[in-house]
């Protein structure tokens, strides 16, 4: 099975976030980057499918030069080769624009299966995998926790809301968006890290933005508070004592 995994490099979860001078994005120099969490699960699913059914795992990622470190991490975990779509204005492109970049880059590979994480932890559009399926003319399923190869194609387990699940059967080629938690993530081994350096990473230059996007991000801001939060001061012991007082006499819960 030839599997393509689209991964994204995103700011680390605990990264300190400042809005940059354009007011449209964050100050990137402050931030450490990591592989998007659900994309890591998509990669894991791809590697496990290859171990069971043999084949090839190709990772694709769009972004500036720094994305190379996340691609190397995927290669170190076991992906066979990679495509880096070199693109310095990813945040100005909408979900359709980014999906088009990826679709153009992977079309020649004619993969059997395309996996993505279900949503990025930064922009959070949650659309890339679904639009990729549409652009490539293949069926798709989203929020997938488990993938099983069958004679006819795939049987997948899809997460629904409120603790429900559903099985879906679909033919190949297909695209799936993977939910976190379906597998245990592997770590890269030393051998894997060494090998990654020799694996193919093809760099393609992203086509220039073709006019303005459909959905334009005009500006970012700190969110409005929904409740007025009383922040309780003091060291741990003082704060704990004050909180208990407040829960007892103000909120009348204890």
């Amino acid at each position: 099975m030839k599997i393509i995994v689209a991964i994204k490099q995103v700011p680390e979860r605990d990264a300190h976030i400042r809005i940059d001078s354009s007011g449209k994005w964050i100050e990137e120099s402050d931030v450490q980057y990591a592989m998007n969490e659900s994309d890591a699960y998509a990669l894991e699913e791809a590697l496990q499918l290859r171990e069971k059914h043999s084949g090839e795992v190709i990772v694709v990622s769009a972004g500036p030069e720094r994305v190379g470190t996340t691609i190397r991490e995927a290669l170190a975990k076991g992906a066979d080769r990679a495509i880096h779509i070199d693109c310095n204005d990813l945040n100005q492109r909408d979900a359709l624009g980014v999906a088009r970049l990826i679709a153009d880059a992977i079309r020649p590979d004619n993969a059997d299966l395309i996996l993505t994480g279900l949503q990025s932890d930064d922009l959070g559009y949650g659309q890339t995998g679904v639009i990729l399926a549409e652009l490539l003319g293949v069926p798709h399923a989203t929020l997938i926790l488990h993938v099983e190869k069958t004679d006819a194609g795939l049987k997948v387990k899809r997460e629904l809301e409120a603790g429900f699940f559903q099985e879906i059967e679909l033919p190949l080629p297909a695209a799936l968006t993977i939910q976190s938690g379906g597998n245990k993530l592997r770590y890269a081994t030393l051998m894997g890290i060494k090998k990654a350096k020799t694996k193919e990473m093809r760099v393609v230059t992203a086509a220039a933005l073709d006019g303005a996007p459909v959905a334009v991000l005009d500006g970012i801001a700190h969110p409005k508070k929904q409740r007025s939060t009383q922040i309780i001061p003091g060291d741990a012991k003082q704060a704990a004592a004050t909180l208990v007082e407040k829960l007892k006499f103000e909120a009348r819960i204890l």
Partner: peptide
């Protein structure tokens, strides 16, 4: 903190045991 009524900004490994003690004492 945008949805919280009360917040403690701090290390949970210090705050949580202190809170457990304070609740035991209050009860």
């Amino acid at each position: 903190f945008e949805v919280a009524d009360y917040g403690i900004v701090g290390d949970l490994f210090e705050v949580v045991p202190a809170l457990t003690e304070a609740i035991k004492a209050a009860k």
